[in-house]
Write a protein that binds this DNA or RNA. Sequence first.
DNA 1: AAGTATCTCAACCGCGCTCAT
DNA 2: AATGAGCGCGGTTGAGATACT
Length: 303
Amino acid sequence: MAGNREEGIRKGPWKAEEDEVLINHVKKYGPRDWSSIRSKGLLQRTGKSCRLRWVNKLRPNLKNGCKFSLEEERVVIELQAQFGNKWARIATYLPGRTDNDVKNFWSSRQKRLARILQSPPTSSKSQKNKVEVSSDHEVPSFEARNISLSSEGESSSTALQSSSSGIQNSETIKMLPLPDLVNPSKLFNFDQDLTHQAEFNTTENNLCNGSQPLITFPPALQAQSDLTFSSESRDHLARFSDPYFDMLSSVDSSKLGNVADLDFGPPFLEPPETIRTGVVREKFDSEPDCFFDDFPIDMFDHI
DNA sequence: AAGTATCTCAACCGCGCTCAT
DNA sequence: AATGAGCGCGGTTGAGATACT
């Protein structure tokens, strides 16, 4: 009876003895014929389970228990934007990482982002960044406890920074309609959307011409919101849209305490004037644990 | 110190593809 | 050509660890 056959299958955490049997099998026959392990009576595990265990845990040269480096994060972000959720493919670019590792990394990153966008303000400190809404959509407040600053910024990031610093006050920026941001299906590609659907015009004309929007979105996204921001707000928006500016990952707070000494790479080598001299940098030094606290209040007034 | 929230990781499940029969 | 087994992949879940209040 099939039920009896299924009953013999072990599930759950692997024991050391099972690992040993699996390793011996691979030594003998190579990483294949997974189903034969059970049919030979070596293990009461499905072939699938055996393969998974080997690929994710027992395979040589795995970086088990080792957090993703900034470089690895950068690669994942870049390749995810390029390939989508092709974790196995992305993992091939990261020696020692499995598709499961990449998948877990991305998943927790997205969860953090989702929570940041959805969680209500919990303190008087975060109240100042509370989003005022006039629509009937439920709108998240913006709060983040951690930021991560990739040391691998690219020229696009630098371009964004310098672009932003050139914007004059009261320019109009087309933004992704908020309801789409709140929609979970969109939410999980939020940073990707901003990064890849927005086109940032960095021409000299636009840097100097305050009447033109510097951030333009594809026509499909331009329909709804015309938002007006101060130049400071736009600086932050540009950082938001930088694929290598990962505000969501943890960073050593002790290092942030002396942020001036850190090497942030290109995005921070030429920070916008507001960051170099203004209140943003000052706050950043003193209160590194709340990214959105750095945003001027006016930036969300129109959402 | 205790309770709660969040994160990380390992493992399972279902689907689809490939290949042998 | 049809079928089924084996495999690979992406999505999801749950347990334990850690951080926060």
